[in-house]
Structure formats: structure tokens, C-alpha cells
Amino acid sequence: MINYLIVENILSREFIVKTLSKPWFSDITYIQTKERFVYLTTIMDLYNRKIIGWSLSDAMSTDETTLRTWKMAVKNRNIEKGLIFHSD
């Protein structure tokens, strides 16, 4: 039997935010091209709905998707105390 970690829903679907850099949302979109899939990873600051980090890659490795996107996001926004990073 496999036990999966179930994380508490801290945000509770409250998507109206009054402070910059509190919840960040991330997602990966699969884009099919004629030759292969490519993967677009984004991080959005929920406060103003601005994409603060992104990457486009042809592999699903963490280094090429999430970590590359995270590094761009922290260059564009300071990490504030209480930051919630949400990803599926």
C-alpha cells in the first residue's frame, strides 16, 4: 500500500489577495507540436495575476521546468514571509 502526503488546503479557495507576493500559483501546460510535446511552466503572483516566472522546455525534468521557473520568479519578486506556493 502506498501512502501519499495530503497537504492542508491553506488557501481555501480565497483567490482575492490584498498583498503582493503572498500566494504564488504554478502550473505546467503540455503543448503538442508537430514533432513532440513541449512544456510551459509558469508561476503567477495571485495578487495582480502577473506571470513572474516561466520556462519552456522539451523535457519534464524538474531542473528544466519548476526550478528554472522558480529561479526567474525569485529574481522578479522578493519572497515575503508567509508565502504560499501552490502547484498541482
Rank of each mutant, 00 (worst) to 15 (best):
F37A: 12
I31E: 01
S21V: 02
P23L: 04
W54K: 13
G53H: 12
K34T: 06
G53M: 11
R49Y: 09
L46W: 04
P23N: 08
Y30R: 13
D45F: 03
P23M: 05
D45E: 05
F25Y: 12
T42W: 00
I51C: 04
V38P: 03
Q32K: 14
S21N: 15
K50T: 05
I28H: 06
K34H: 04
R36C: 10
D45L: 00
L46S: 10
T41G: 06
L56E: 09
T42L: 11
I28T: 15
I52G: 04
I31S: 02
V38F: 00
Y30G: 13
I52T: 00
K22I: 14
D27E: 10
I28Q: 11
M44E: 07
T33N: 05
W54E: 09
T33V: 00
W24R: 11
I51V: 14
I43R: 01
R36G: 01
Y47Q: 10
M44Y: 02
Q32E: 06
I43F: 01
D27Q: 02
K50C: 06
E35F: 05
L40V: 09
S26K: 10
V38G: 00
T42K: 02
S26G: 15
Y39I: 15
M44R: 08
I31R: 01
T29I: 14
S26N: 06
Y39K: 13
T29A: 15
R36T: 04
V38W: 00
G53L: 11
V38E: 06
L56H: 03
S21R: 03
Q32I: 00
D27R: 03
F25D: 12
P23Y: 04
N48H: 06
W24I: 09
S57M: 12
V38T: 14
Y30S: 15
G53C: 11
R36D: 08
S26M: 11
W54V: 08
N48L: 07
D27A: 10
E35Q: 13
V38Y: 00
V38R: 03
M44G: 03
F37G: 02
G53S: 07
I28S: 12
I28F: 05
D27Y: 03
E35N: 15
S57K: 08
K34A: 02
K22Q: 12
K50A: 11
Q32G: 02
I51L: 07
D27N: 12
M44I: 15
Y47V: 05
L40S: 05
P23Q: 09
P23D: 04
W24C: 07
L40K: 08
L40D: 13
Q32R: 07
P23G: 08
